[in-house]
């Protein structure tokens, strides 16, 4: 059980993950700024490029990641109440929800590449493919982390201390946060 006193300030999860999350956000910030600067330097190229994307798939992905994040947050809540079996269950549901993202992203890459677009087509596609793929790899990494957490929770690994669940969840929320910026930046603002 988590014995935090009500009203006392505490940072959920391991401090190391927060340092890492800030580092990750720095990398993404750099990527986003490069994207928006390049966009204002190449207005037409970016408009043409964005027209070939699939905003609906982007929307589905946003919803799936937000919902998955929500389920994982629920799982932390259960863990903090000592209901570890339920906690693990919600982590699995979160992973299942995120797999929607993986499928849609895969379809979107497929359809773009079938049209002959790739990393080398022009600056827009370089940034589109790199940023989204970089994020895609983060989702995969997050899922691996969540699987580890769910397994450990199922085996009762967090009975005395739920820091591990919080750490995994915090990373997962960061992946969600990044997509929340990425979706409007790449898909919506034309």
């Amino acid at each position: 059980m988590n014995k935090s006193v009500v009203g006392q300030k505490r940072l959920p999860g391991d401090l190391a993950i927060w340092i890492f999350i800030l580092a990750e956000l720095t990398v993404f910030a750099a990527l986003f700024i490069v994207f928006s600067v390049s966009k204002s330097l190449n207005v037409e190229m970016f408009a043409e490029g964005q027209a070939t994307l699939h905003p609906l798939m982007g929307l589905i992905n946003t919803l799936s990641l937000i919902t998955s994040s929500f389920f994982v947050a629920k799982s932390v809540l259960f863990a903090s109440q000592g209901q570890l079996a339920k906690s693990a269950q919600w982590v699995w549901i979160g992973i299942a929800t995120a797999s929607i993202y993986i499928v849609t992203k895969f379809i979107e890459y497929q359809s773009l590449m079938a049209l002959g677009y790739n990393l080398r087509t022009n600056i827009f596609y370089t940034l589109y493919f790199f940023i989204t793929f970089f994020h895609f790899m983060h989702v995969l990494m997050g899922i691996v982390i969540l699987i580890v957490v769910a397994n450990k929770a199922r085996k009762g690994g967090y009975e005395s201390d739920i820091t591990g669940v919080e750490t995994g969840a915090s990373y997962w929320h960061m992946v969600d946060m990044v997509w929340v910026v990425l979706f409007p930046l790449i898909y919506v603002i034309k």
Binding site: L11, D14, L15, A16, F20, F134, M137, T163, T167
Partner: peptide, 25 residues
């Protein structure tokens, strides 16, 4: 605060992070 900065977490970040970037590279 610092006591919840665990070494195993730091190690996981190192291993996970470098594997991730090696694959990307």
């Amino acid at each position: 605060m610092a006591e919840r900065f665990t070494k195993s977490m730091a190690r996981n970040i190192y291993l996970g992070g470098s594997t991730f970037f090696i694959l990307l590279f």
